[in-house]
Design a binder for these strands. Structure first.
Length: 300
RNA sequence: GGGGGGGUAGCGAAGUGGCUAAACGCGGUUGACUGUAAAUCAAUUCUCUCCGAGUUCGGCGGUUCGAAUCCGUCCCCCCCCA
C-alpha cells in the first residue's frame, strides 16, 4: 500500500501551517479536504490559504468549482484520489489536510458511490410515510436512521432504487484503508480554540470579508447555492437584507463556528483512530513532525 | 410628584388558582454520521437520586385544601406626564 499522511482537526487548530512544514520537509504536495474551499471566490470567509501562504507548495482540491455548482463527497473522492495518485507517481507521499471528516474517510476507505445518484429529488411526502417505505425496502438502514432525518431517509430510498440497498452496498465494503495511513488530529483546549476562532473572525471582517460576500452573494438568487450554505456566508443574508447589524452577524458566525468545531471534534474522536496532538505545544509538534518524517522516509 | 407597563430557569419568552419543575426559541452539554457533511439529525439542560424526593417564577408576609398565577408590603427596571 502507498503511504498517505493525514493532518486533521477542527477549524483554526493550525492544520495548514503544520502541513506546510511537513510538505517542505518531504518536498511533497498537499491535498485539501474541505467542502467549502473548493469554491473559487470563497477565500476570506472560508479561511482558505492564500497563494502566498502556500509558499510554492502545490495544493490540490482547492478552487475547483464555481459558486453555482454542486459538490459532494463523490466528487471529492474522485478528485482527491486522482491527486493522490498523481503525487504518488512523482514518488512523493501526499499530505491530506482538512476538517471535513466524511471526505477524508471516503477517500481513505473503500466507500462506494454511484455517479447517477448525485441529486436526491425532494418528496412531498411526510417523514412518516418515507420512513415506512424505507422500513420496507431497507430495514437495516432504517434502523440506524432517525425518522426526523429526512435527508438520510431520502438518500437511502434513492440508493434502494438501484436494486441494491444502502446497507447491502456498505456490507460489501471491507472498511479498511486503501492506503498506508498515518493520521493525526490537531487539537487544543477549548477555551484557547474559541479565542482563536473569535480573533480569526475579527481579522476576516477587517480584511474584506464583507466585500467578498457582497461580490459573491448580492443577488438573492445566489442564496440557494450550495456554496452559500457554508458558515461565514449564510449568516450574512440577514445583514444584506439589513435585518441585523455587523456585530450581530459576527456573533452568529462565532457561535456557528464554535458549534462546528465541536461537531468536528466529536467526529474525529469517534469516527477515526488518529493520534491526537496538542497543537499548542511546540515540542510535541516538533516530535510529531519528526516522527511523521521518519515514517515517510522508511522503505516499506 | 402623577400615570402606565414590567421583573419567570444561562438568555429571550409563554403561562394569570390545581392537568406546571414551568410551553417554545436561543445558548450549553453529550452523541449519531458512507452523496448538500461548514450539512442533517438525536438526547439532555433547577438540585440530589433508580423509582422518587427537595428547592423554584424579584424579596418578605398573607389568603387558600392548593399560588408563578389572588391580596398586602418592600426593592428594582422601562415608558409617558410633571
Amino acid at each position: 500500500m502507498k503511504k498517505v499522511i493525514v493532518i486533521a482537526g477542527a477549524t483554526a487548530t493550525g492544520k495548514s501551517s503544520f502541513a506546510l512544514r511537513l510538505a517542505h520537509a518531504l518536498m511533497t504536495e498537499i491535498v485539501s479536504c474541505d467542502s467549502i474551499q473548493v469554491y473559487r471566490d470563497l477565500n476570506i470567509g472560508s479561511a482558505k490559504i492564500t497563494t502566498e501562504e502556500m509558499q510554492g507548495i502545490v495544493h490540490h482540491c482547492l478552487n475547483t468549482r464555481n459558486l453555482d455548482q454542486q459538490y459532494s463527497v463523490y466528487d471529492f473522492q474522485q478528485e482527491a484520489r486522482a491527486a493522490i495518485a498523481k503525487i504518488h507517481s512523482l514518488g512523493k507521499i501526499p499530505i491530506l489536510v482538512g476538517g471535513t471528516g466524511l471526505y477524508l474517510k471516503a477517500v481513505l476507505y473503500d466507500y462506494d458511490f454511484e455517479k447517477e445518484e448525485m441529486i436526491i429529488p425532494e418528496s412531498s411526502e411526510s417523514n412518516e410515510i418515507l420512513y415506512a417505505r424505507l422500513l420496507q425496502e431497507d430495514p437495516v438502514s432504517a434502523s440506524s436512521i432517525h425518522i426526523n432525518n429526512r435527508k438520510r431517509i431520502l438518500r437511502a430510498l434513492e440508493i434502494a432504487k438501484s436494486g441494491e440497498t444502502k446497507s447491502q452496498r456498505e456490507a460489501k465494503q471491507e472498511k479498511k484503508p486503501i492506503y498506508d495511513v498515518t493520521m493525526i488530529v490537531l487539537d487544543m483546549p477549548n477555551v484557547v480554540l474559541e479565542k482563536r476562532i473569535d480573533e480569526r473572525i475579527r481579522r476576516m471582517a477587517e480584511n474584506g470579508w464583507i466585500e467578498e460576500v457582497k461580490h459573491c452573494f448580492s443577488d438573492p438568487q445566489t442564496w440557494t447555492y450550495q456554496s452559500f450554505q457554508g458558515i461565514g456566508y449564510k449568516e450574512w443574508k440577514e445583514y444584506l437584507q439589513e435585518k441585523i447589524g455587523l456585530e450581530e452577524t459576527l456573533l452568529t458566525i462565532l457561535i456557528h463556528t464554535r458549534q462546528f468545531a465541536k461537531r468536528q471534534r466529536t467526529w474525529f474522536r469517534h469516527q477515526s483512530t488518529a493520534t491526537w496532538v496538542n497543537a499548542l505545544d511546540p515540542f510535541t509538534l516538533d516530535r510529531t513532525a519528526s516522527e511523521i518524517i521518519s515514517w515517510a522516509k522508511q522503505e516499506e
